[in-house]
Structures are given as C-alpha cells and as structure tokens.
Design a protein around this nucleic acid. Structure first.
Lengths: 151, 151
DNA sequence: CAATGCAGTTAGAATCATTCTAATTCTAAA
DNA sequence: TTTAGAATTAGAATGATTCTAACTGCATTG
C-alpha cells in the first residue's frame, strides 16, 4: 500500500505554526489542542487533575485517561514538559523557553526562573568521561517572597 | 516529671559519631541503623523496595512499612536524602557530600557528580526579590559512557 | 457510496507506590 | 514490675498512573 498522506487537524491555527517550527509530528486533535491550550495559558504548573478540571469547561465529556493520553503525546512531541518536584502528582509546563523551577516549600507554589547567564554544568560538576548530557533539570527549593514575608 | 535523658541505642558505633556531628536527634533503632547502613553502602540510589530486599538479608522479618518509616525518619533527621528523577518510585541517597545526580536515560543508572567549582544559582537564573533559597537539586540527564559506547 | 482500518477516546479495572490504621512488641523510666 | 511512649507490623486504604477492551469517527479503499 502507498504511504498515506499525513493528516492535518480540522481547524489549523497559530498553534500549528508552533508545531511545525518544532518539527513535531503529533496530530493535534481537538482534545490535544485543548489540553495544550489550557497548559499554555497556565503559569502554575498544573497536575493532570488540574488540567482535567480546566479542560472540562470546554469539553465536559473529556476523561482523565484522555488527559493523560494527550499529555503523554504532547510530552513525547516536545510541546510540553513534565516536571517532578515532589513525591506525588507530576506537574506539566508549556513554557519551552529555557528556565528552571523555584519551588516554595511553604505554599507549594512553583515559579519559573529565567536564565540571566549561560550555564554549563560541566564547569561545576565532574562527570565520568564519555558521558553525554542531553538536558539538565534544576529545581531551586526555598521560601517564596509572600511566605517569607509572613514568617 | 523531669526531662528524660536522651536514650542511646544499644550498640554505639561509628555511625553514632556521624549522628552527633550532624546534630540530629533521631533515635537510631536497630532497623533504622540497618536501613541507614544498607543505604550508606549503596551507590546506586536504591528505591524503598531495593532497600527492603537488602535489609531482609540481615533482618528477614522487616516489613515495607518499617522501611518507609525508617527512611522517613532518616530523611527528616537529615541523614539521608530523597531523590526524584522520574515518575514512579522515589530513590534514596546517603551521600551527604554536596553533589548532583546524573541520570542515564538509556539504562536508568544514577551516578553522583561531585562539584569542581562553587555554584550559585542566583548568578544564572533570576528569582523574584525576597525569595529565600534553601537548597538546589540539579539532575543532569543524558547517556552514560557505557550506553554511549554501545550505540 | 459502502466497507475497512486505524487512531483517538472512553469508563472502569488494574497496578504501583506510598501512607494510614490498629494491634502488638519493645524499651526504658518510675 | 508496671507503665508510657515509641517502634514495628500486616494489611487496608489511598492516590497517581497505566492498562484494557469497547466504541467512535474520520479517511482511504473497493
């Protein structure tokens, strides 16, 4: 059989550009698009349940399984990132600019911290020869300014 | 009633020094001691189940609940550290020297990387004013030399 | 146009990791 | 020795995620 032409989602929009730019081949179905849009408009690093709640206002019938499924596809495609800061629920992040996470140990809030200088981990930590680094995840833990002010 | 003198474990050993040095007040019961010793002699960042398996050879009757309980106390006391690199099981680490973790995405191995220079996150990422940093967790992801050689 | 096939979606079950509960055991002080 | 409190235990409960099997709808094929 001949290779089938790639299918495109029903309503192209600005998001498709982003998709194309990143060279991803994920099919952006309506649910995946909604999950992505919800995440892209959130700055609080929501959990899968948070995302389910938010997507439900647009697609009341969506299930948790579909949210996990969409998040999995979007993560694989590199459109979003998975963040692990604590034991328990994973969090998701659609900020693809280089950044690290600040986690307030008092209120649990997660804040993106943007780079002000180039960072090369090899300058600070010694890795065995032959090791290849693909990415680094820095989590900064402490007390946010609001919580620090209270105590 | 008068304040009770601090109780000491039955068989003091070198570990008690470490305990004292760190100013911790955890009671080092036999199980806690074994869990700590198992972890201190491991370099592979074992999970709670791994630790259960290893402790069982010395204390066959120990339960998973006790392992979690011991790990919790040891973590609170600052004797060991909890490491989250991926979704799923937490890992534990008794290396209290300052270090970061390298995680091989191919074989899953976790390697400690030791510092070769002072690292101040504030020099590389901007945090909101008033933020207090208590610790940083850096995870370096990539391919270890063994896996890199294979491919 | 109807048939087919496949990806997406779903509810609910299953699994996995962790925490909780209530009973029991141990240790050390009274 | 009695007692109080902490440690320990098995198993239940919870919480997060993944799996399963059925169903849906679209797109290509006949």
């Amino acid at each position: 059989m001949p290779p089938s032409p790639s299918r495109t989602p029903a309503k192209p929009s600005g998001l498709d550009c982003r998709l194309a730019v990143l060279g991803s081949d994920v099919r952006l179905t309506p649910h995946r698009r909604e999950v992505f849009e919800v995440l892209a408009s959130s700055t609080d690093h929501p959990t899968a349940y948070d995302i389910l709640d938010r997507v439900k206002s647009r697609s009341p019938g969506i299930s948790l399984a579909t949210v996990y499924n969409c998040l999995e596809h979007l993560t694989t495609a590199g459109l979003i990132k998975l963040v692990h800061l604590e034991r328990g629920q994973s969090r998701y992040c659609a900020n693809l600019h280089e950044h690290v996470h600040f986690h307030c140990e008092t209120c649990g809030k997660v804040i993106d911290a943007h780079p002000v200088a180039d960072f090369d981990p090899a300058k600070f930590w010694s890795l065995p020869p032959g090791t290849k680094v693909t990415r680094t995840d820095l989590a900064i833990h402490g007390t946010c300014s609001a919580c620090a002010a209270k105590s």
